Amino acid sequence: MSLFSHSVKCQRSKNQLYYRIYPKKGEIWAMYTNWNKNWKQSDYKNYQYRVVEILEDFSEASGARVARLVEVKGCMTFFQRHRHDGFELTRAVSKDEMLSFSHRIPAFIVPGIERYGIPESWIHLEPNALPPRSRN
């Protein structure tokens, strides 16, 4: 993951010892699958990811709302929102689950791609920021 970098917006903690980085609406993030607050350092070695789009900014009261993204078949760097019976699947991520976010994945809407049969709803993700395929 060290092959890329991008700027992030953060909040300084009250005691100034650390920064808080919260996912923002419209960003794409990798989240640890099956994460829980009791994970130890060794649990991060056998991780799996899911890719999500942030639908609502984080708030202390309600956390954040996310939509799961799935890889478009045959297009390794294009993703779309996961649908089940015509409904987009979303979920709330509580304040206590915020450490389940791993890293932001830079994403782009590619203009003019519909002439190649690629709908504008598909999102191109930065390949170097994608989680390893063997763990997807």
Rank of each mutant, 00 (worst) to 15 (best):
S2T: 08
S2W: 05
F4L: 15
S5Y: 13
K9I: 12
K9W: 05
Q11I: 03
Q11F: 07
Q11E: 10
R12H: 14
S13Q: 08
L17W: 03
L17C: 09
Y18N: 14
Y19A: 08
R20T: 04
R20K: 11
K24F: 04
G26H: 07
W29D: 05
Y32M: 02
N36T: 15
K37D: 11
N38E: 12
W39S: 07
K40Y: 06
K45P: 01
Y49M: 02
Y49N: 13
R50Y: 03
R50I: 09
E53Y: 01
E53D: 00
I54H: 00
E56R: 12
S59N: 05
S59P: 06
S59F: 02
E60F: 04
S62E: 13
S62D: 12
A67D: 06
R68N: 07
R68D: 14
V70D: 08
V70N: 06
V72N: 04
V72D: 11
V72C: 03
G74A: 02
M76H: 05
T77D: 13
T77M: 03
F78G: 05
F78R: 13
F79V: 01
Q80G: 14
Q80W: 01
R81E: 14
H82A: 03
R83V: 03
F87L: 15
L89G: 08
T90R: 04
R91H: 09
R91A: 10
A92Q: 13
K95Y: 12
L99A: 14
L99P: 08
S102W: 00
I105F: 09
I105G: 09
A107F: 06
A107I: 08
I109F: 04
I109Y: 03
P111V: 08
G112I: 08
I113F: 11
E114G: 09
Y116A: 09
G117E: 08
I118P: 04
P119T: 07
S121I: 15
W122E: 15
P127C: 09
P127W: 07
S134C: 07
R135S: 10
